[in-house]
Every structure is written in C-alpha cells, then in structure tokens.
C-alpha cells in the first residue's frame, strides 16, 4: 500500500489555484493528471467525479475538500493538490469554504486501496498542525515534506 506522499508528485501540486468555483477547481486539478497520462478518458472521469459531488459533499470541513472518483478512466491511484487563498465552496457540513483541495483518482478495480487512501488522507487533514503548515508551504517540495513527516 502506497503512502500519500508517494501518490502525490511536485508537478501535481498547485499552490495558488486560479479557479475559485468547485467544478472549475476540479477541472484545474484534473488537467494536471491528464497531462501526466493518468486519465485515459477525460469525459468519463469528469462524469464520475461530478456525479459523486452530486451524491455527497466532498468538503469534509475544517477548510478541506477531497473530491474523488473510482472509474475505469483512471490508470492508477494518483493525487493532485491545490491550495486556494480565497476558498472554494464545496458545500461542507460546517459551512466553511475549502482552502486545501486534494483530488483522488483511482481505477475501478482498486477499491480497497482507494478507500484506505481516502481514510488516511482524511485522518491526516484533521491534524490542525498539518493544515496550518500546508497553508504556509512555499513550494511543492515543502508540501510533500509536510505530508511525509506526518503520515
């Protein structure tokens, strides 16, 4: 089972998201994974991730959102991270905008790894120190160091 820090690479980290609306943020983060060759069918992936957003709020509160999808349109489990200075409305139950957005893409057949990745990431991001440090990180490498240290 791969660690969170092994599923996220520096090119998949955006420290200042351009988009400030949920669907646009998801598109901005997905575009990185498309460039990296992880998404084999863009329409199918978007459809899956937006359907999930409709079923549930992926804003887990505390300024964090984890949009995610498990679909045949993905080659392997991978993460992208974006940070929003203004915050994005992911309809979190606590009503707060999300500043830290982690997108998880997983292939259909890797259900257990996908669930464990979601669980580990959610646990990690409930740590107040981790959230604070991620908001302060100046480089993608620093983001990865913070995650590596705390996971």
């Amino acid at each position: 089972m791969q660690k969170i820090s092994e599923l996220l690479s520096p090119p998949a980290i955006i420290l200042d998201l351009k988009a400030n609306e949920k669907v646009e943020v998801i598109k901005e983060l997905t575009s990185i994974l498309i460039e990296q060759g992880y998404i084999t069918n863009v329409d199918e992936f978007f459809s899956a991730i937006l359907k999930r957003e409709n079923i549930e709020s992926t804003g887990i509160g505390l300024g964090v959102a984890i949009p995610h999808a498990r679909t045949k349109a993905v080659k392997d489990i991978v993460l992208a991270f974006g940070r929003s200075r203004t915050g994005v409305n992911f309809s979190s139950l606590d009503g707060k905008p999300s500043h830290l957005v982690f997108l998880i893409a997983a292939p259909e057949e890797k259900k257990s790894e996908y669930i464990i990745t979601l669980a580990r990431l959610s646990k990690l991001l409930r740590n107040e120190e981790v959230r604070f440090r991620l908001t302060q990180a100046k480089t993608p490498d620093e983001v990865l160091k913070i995650i590596t240290k705390h996971e």
Binding site: K51, E56, R70, K111, I115, I116, L118, A119, R120, S122
Partner: peptide, 14 residues
C-alpha cells in the same frame, strides 16, 4: 478505521 468505514458506505451509496 472510522474514515475507512465511512468511505466504504459512501462508495456503496454512490
């Protein structure tokens, strides 16, 4: 473990 349980049912709900 709690998050895994929650995400498991979320996947079923989906």
């Amino acid at each position: 473990e709690a998050w895994a349980i929650l995400y498991e049912i979320e996947d079923d709900a989906f």
